[in-house]
Design a protein around this nucleic acid. Sequence first.
RNA 1: GGAUGGGUGGCCGAGUGGUUGAAGGCGCACGCCUGGAAAGCGUGUGGGCAUGAAAGUGUCUCGCGAGUUCGAAUCUCGCCCCAUCCGCCA
Length: 425
Amino acid sequence: MHDIRLLRDQLDLVRDAMRRRGKLDELGPLLDRAESLERDRRSAITELEAQQARRNKLTQEVGQLRKAGADATALMAEARAAGDAIAVLEQRRSEADAAVQQMLYELPNITLPEVPEGGESANTVVRAWGTPREDGASIKPHWEVGETLGIIDLPRGAKISGSGFIVYRGAGARLVRALMNMMLDIHTDEHGYEECWVPLVVNRASMTGTGQFPKFEEDVYAITGEDLFLIPTAEVPVTNLYRDEILEIGELPKGFCAFSACFRKEAGAAGKDTRGLLRVHEFDKVELVRYATPETSLDELERLTGHSEVILQRLGLPYRVVLLAAGDTGFSSAKTYDLEVFAPGVGKWLEVSSCSVFTDFQARRANIRYRPAPGEKPKFVHTLNGSALAFSRIIASILEHWQQPDGSVRIPDALQPYLGRAELR
RNA sequence: GGAUGGGUGGCCGAGUGGUUGAAGGCGCACGCCUGGAAAGCGUGUGGGCAUGAAAGUGUCUCGCGAGUUCGAAUCUCGCCCCAUCCGCCA
């Protein structure tokens, strides 16, 4: 969510930001109305407050008269009239307010200057690590290896839940557990994150705080009969840990890592990259969340992205870091790096992490502030998060990149102690 | 699910219709004191919005919403949340 003052004072800047996202056709009309919506809101406030001031004054005089035992009937009538006027103005104010609020909820964040404008085709690879295998033709896709090895059971996942729900079995189940432990150990022991274990079910305020709601409510699973929702990412509960709180400057930057299952409807995505583990309704992920000051948040994004990269390096998986173009950058994000791993069996780069800085966009929604110095006014923090990493696609990558000619799969050294074996066969 | 008790400022905690935005305490800031610190003493200190160049002024805010009233933190109704007990249960 933006500061309304930005739309008031720098509408052109907002308009240009929407253009760079390729959203001007969609959001231009909304922006055209912004000025009049905001003007309405402010004139409603001004008139309302004038009446309120008048009534407050009358009311006080009534009190004094009555205390003195005098007759206050005339003043009381006048105050009542002011009250009636206030009721009307209040209605107008709340309508104008809601209109502005709704507009603010619809507008995505403004991407930073270094983010290329345009859509997905303008994404740029900023660096790469490792060497992708080129013998893809001889490599079986992960769903075949997984089935052969008896570690992934897609048919039974579909039977008990539906397409897009995975059953891991035997060493596959243990692989999930191993990945969780390895990632969390590295982030806590080496990168200094505080580990936390959060609810998978959150309320509406939390979903609104991180930007999922109101715009993307149809993308998440809701609990019938309750105003509760399954999280699409641990970003939601972890970022909302400090919703409506004021942090002390000494607490920043602050970093959390959390393992969680993630639930996504993925409606409308049918047919695209849906084989095997590539796009599923429920997957596991270790998430990193950081709270920072505006001064350091950009550096924090680099740091956070680096933390995610460490995991890929330990797993020996070749990857590239992609700076997303404005049009491909998520609604709440100001700048996003995707980490993509090459999966030679399917011949594709798989997005296994998305690391973003949200500037104050989420903090304003979730009302997360910090006090820059003792006695100073609170300011909004900057929030960041990144996957480190999403399991299902990592498992797919491991099964393909580390696949041996005989169909077995070598386990990366760093993972071996956690899995308790050096290969899957 | 049932019962009871609660939701007040950064935190704790008074306050049952009229200068109460809110006593007191903690914390924090500044000053005094001190060789320096602690303690002690003094002063100050919520957040949002509108307006204004600023100082300031106005307004809202005591979980949320509606109602009663000239006037609500305070009375009424509905809702939400928290705690405890009972029930159920991994």
